[in-house]
Design a protein around this nucleic acid. Structure first.
Lengths: 198, 198
DNA sequence: ACCATACCGAACATGGTGTTCATCATTATA
DNA sequence: TATAATGATGAACACCATGTTCGGTATGGT
């Protein structure tokens, strides 16, 4: 659909996307105006509207790219080191690796800077992956399947945000380990100090 | 600080708060303009700016009220049914009860409708409560204390959102039970269908 | 070299913002 | 009940971002 070929158009779109990222990191999505974007990207006003209907459209468009990249990374990881592929929540490692490579982009999305739109889109993309990873999960009466999906996505975002904002020194593997521990076993072990397991 | 006494001022502030809530539920926080608010509340433009510096200020102000109410509900629950007070995460029950009573307000805050500001403020308030509840949690090398706090708050918001938006029929006690299960034990039991515990 | 097309930039109407001010209404209090 | 204080009103204002249009310019594909 709508194959873009002309170099000029590609140049413009890349400039707009990267301008938006810079501005989100600098002053947040909500506070960023289209005027800011076209100034930062050095692009004419009418040119912007020739490509996108507004800043929300521009942002959403970026997520299509992210989704593609993440899917590819997923596939690569799956075919690469086989063995760890059918672990529960085995998809997360590739995501943390990807986030390490594009830390600035993820940082722009996460933690409020990207506004409701960014978090919403990110949740949507991650939910797809999580659902794919929990195909046969039984819906035990206690906790519904969809709640489990939301819980896992929420935990993923919590660890991701905490990692990028407060412990950027950790390796993707370390962040992933914390995510798996919390998502699979909860925080009980870190909370119950005096009471026993039973 | 700044004791408000005059009935007229109270009337105006209440009208503005309730107008904002209605509008958030109807069209979302971002899309709501100050013009909308003063129209809905039937209040003069200059009157609005006499009380608040903008819509963000109005929203933030509402959270001070929420925090007070929640703290009171907390205290009441603690003195009322003693015995369950020192359970791990024992604060959550009172919160779910409170949310049931003010479902429309919570619904306006949660799930994106309230914008980044609302979620941020809600996180801040809830974080305070969670930190108070985990005073002596040991910082085992695996997962840092602050990450645990963020994880618990995130899980709280996940369950809260899911409850209000998709299962409004459940009782506060049922929602609370799901929260405790996920926060303390994780989703491992709901995910691992074929593999054993070891 | 040609032509399609992407970009430019200025101009425009529209609508929200935040402020000021003179006037009117309501309140607390004597 | 009279009065002084304070809050509410609504119109007017300059300012800025939005989204659209259009004639002219450049760069790209072939």
């Amino acid at each position: 659909m709508a194959e873009v070929i002309d170099r000029r158009a590609l140049r413009t779109r890349k400039a707009l996307h990267s301008a938006l990222m810079s501005l989100i990191l600098r002053k947040g999505y909500e506070a960023t105006t289209i005027q800011d974007i076209i100034d930062e990207a050095d692009v004419g006003r009418s040119t912007f509207y020739g490509h996108y209907t507004g800043k929300e459209d521009l942002l959403r468009n970026g997520f299509q790219i992210l989704r593609r990249e993440l899917t590819d990374a997923q596939r690569a990881a799956r075919t690469g080191t086989d063995g760890a592929q059918d672990e529960p929540l085995g998809f997360s490692r590739a995501m943390f690796e990807h986030a390490a490579g594009y830390a600035d982009v993820y940082l722009a999305m996460v933690g409020g800077r990207g506004g409701v739109v960014a978090i919403g889109e990110l949740r949507k993309v991650l939910s797809e992956f999580v659902r794919k990873e929990l195909p046969a999960a039984r819906d035990d009466g206690a906790v519904s399947r969809e709640l489990v999906v939301q819980f896992v996505v929420g935990t993923l975002l919590t660890v991701l945000t905490w990692w990028l904002e407060r412990r950027p020194g950790l390796t993707p593997a370390q962040a992933d380990a914390m995510f798996r521990r919390l998502a699979l076993n909860g925080a009980g072990a870190s909370i119950r100090t005096r009471s026993r397991v039973g």
